[in-house]
């Protein structure tokens, strides 16, 4: 870990303004990903701006019947919130499918959206990685890629966005509210928040320099039955091979988003339109896939996992 300076911001706007005053400044909230990466010098911020204590830690109803989740609300608190559990079950299920109880106590809503890929070549600073060191190449292409992406990836990077929470937010059509260093605010639809890698895999989100997430807005409840099925090699504390977030209505229509296969939570309009046909929806979700030998199985796994979710929605068998 390289030495860094540290400050505590007084307000969200001040934090954003502070972030452009110093090159290489980063916000820190729960620190559950950033600190780990700093220890191994994948992240080497010169300056940390602590955004804890900015009063962004409450969940409030919105006028249209949705929820406004402060960026500093912990994953544990968000998943346990009664309104979330009642009206946005997919979100609770996604959050508790990730990390551990200890980490969820520290991890925040805003920070979770920004967690970085778990590609092993990104973590090992001896190895090439265009995301960590632009232009150095991609170790994962031609290397060990079982966990990595099959759609939306590029010839520069095949990493995935690793999280669970955002997959649920994607299916809910959440919005991300931010403040910029000049004090202006905006909302970014979750579908536009994470970027595809293209030629610049080191640029991961739509956030501009210094822009701070202040809240996540949930639209009014969708009703329907909520599912989050995360497939992995062990039953806890592992990132998804494939995960399916779905909200399915009585008539079989609904929405589906997929985790573990792309640089972002993967949602395709044609897949939603194809429901309840699992095969057709899965075809839409994996259209144009460019898998490696290691992760080709994810194409079938998307279809099978989705089929399992839809079967459960029809009342056929339990998932546990």
């Amino acid at each position: 870990m390289r030495p860094f300076t540290y400050e505590r911001a007084g307000s969200p706007a001040e934090a954003a303004a502070a972030a452009i005053r110093m090159q290489g400044a980063r916000f820190i909230a729960g620190g559950t990903n950033l600190i780990d990466l700093m220890k191994i010098e994948v992240e080497t911020p010169a300056h940390l701006i602590d955004v804890n204590g900015l009063g962004l830690d409450s969940i409030e109803g919105t006028q249209d019947g949705g929820l406004r989740i402060g960026a500093l609300v912990s994953n544990a608190d968000l998943s346990a919130d009664k309104r979330v559990r009642r009206d946005y079950g997919v979100l609770t299920r996604a959050i508790v499918a990730g990390a551990s109880g200890q980490l969820r106590n520290k991890a925040t809503t805003g920070g979770n959206l920004l967690q970085r890929t778990r590609c092993p070549y990104f973590y090992d600073t001896n190895q090439p990685c265009n995301k960590r060191k632009p232009g150095s190449g991609c170790g994962a292409i031609g290397g060990f890629s079982r966990q990595l992406g099959i759609v939306g990836v590029s010839d520069k990077c095949i990493a995935t966005y690793p999280g669970d929470m955002a997959v649920a937010l994607r299916v809910l059509d959440a919005k991300v509210e931010t403040v910029k260093p000049d004090g202006t605010t905006r909302t970014i639809p979750i579908g536009e928040f994470h970027r595809l890698w293209g030629d610049t895999p080191h640029i991961e989100t739509a956030l501009e320099t210094g822009e701070l997430i202040t809240a996540v807005i949930l639209p009014p409840p969708l009703g329907g039955r909520h599912f989050y099925h995360k497939v992995r090699d062990r039953r806890s504390y592992a990132f998804a091979l494939v995960s399916i977030a779905a909200v399915i209505q009585q008539d079989g229509s609904g929405r589906v988003a997929v985790g573990g296969i792309a640089p972002k939570p993967w949602r395709v309009p044609a897949a939603d339109a194809a429901l309840p046909d699992a095969a057709a929806a899965a075809r839409a979700l994996t259209a144009g896939a460019t898998p490696t030998e290691d992760n080709r199985f994810k194409i079938a796994l998307v279809e099978r996992t989705l089929a399992g979710v839809l079967a459960e929605a029809r009342g056929e068998g339990a998932t546990s």
């Binding site: 778990r118 092993p120 973590y123 170790g139 290397g143 060990f144 079982r146 062990r234 039953r235 806890s236």
Partner: peptide, 24 residues
């Protein structure tokens, strides 16, 4: 997992080298 080009065990931490958890 061996990276057969560079010659090392790629998943060299307890996140990448999975051992059973209680739930398993």
């Amino acid at each position: 997992v061996v990276d057969k080009r560079f010659g090392f065990f790629v998943n060299h931490d307890l996140a990448g080298y999975e051992v059973p958890v209680h739930a398993d």
